[in-house]
Amino acid sequence: MDEFSLYVLDITMNSVRAGATEITITLREEGEWLYFSVSDNGCGMTEAQLAKLGNPFFTTRKTRNVGFGIPFLKMLAEMTGGEVTITSVHESVSEKHGTTTSAKFGRNHIDFIPLGDMPDTVKTLIHGSPDIDFTFTHQTERGTVELSTAALREILGEGISLAEPEILMWIEGNLREQYQSL
């Protein structure tokens, strides 16, 4: 994957597939680092699953027996002097279940990749899961870009899906303008 926003999309899809209803995506640029985290209230993972995560030949899916999402993220983080940390509470353990994937990247490192099209990633996530409460925050040294789908849903009221093309276009446009005004 040649742009970071695709990693954001891919890792957040894990939360979607874990049945999360609330997903918080945070990017924070600070000094030489880019901090990234996705936090969800999905089904979580057992300790046995968590232990196997960095192994591409572990996956819970049934259509194929490899999973490259986390290994890719880990590789990019480690190549740029950073790291990936994953904490998870399985639904069988506590009512407060969910997973947080955090990663740190050396954003000036020669092996880091362009951030890419973040509005497109957010739009794609909302298109796929219009009922999930996504909170997206991207903190840069020049200002912050943010979007909360729960707030949008409150304005739109019931009966209008965020996946409607006009709404998706508004979301994308809004994020693009926020990025431009940084």
Partner: peptide, 10 residues
Amino acid sequence: ATCGIAAGAR
């Protein structure tokens, strides 16, 4: 999925 995204599905 990862395979689609990496290949240009977005």
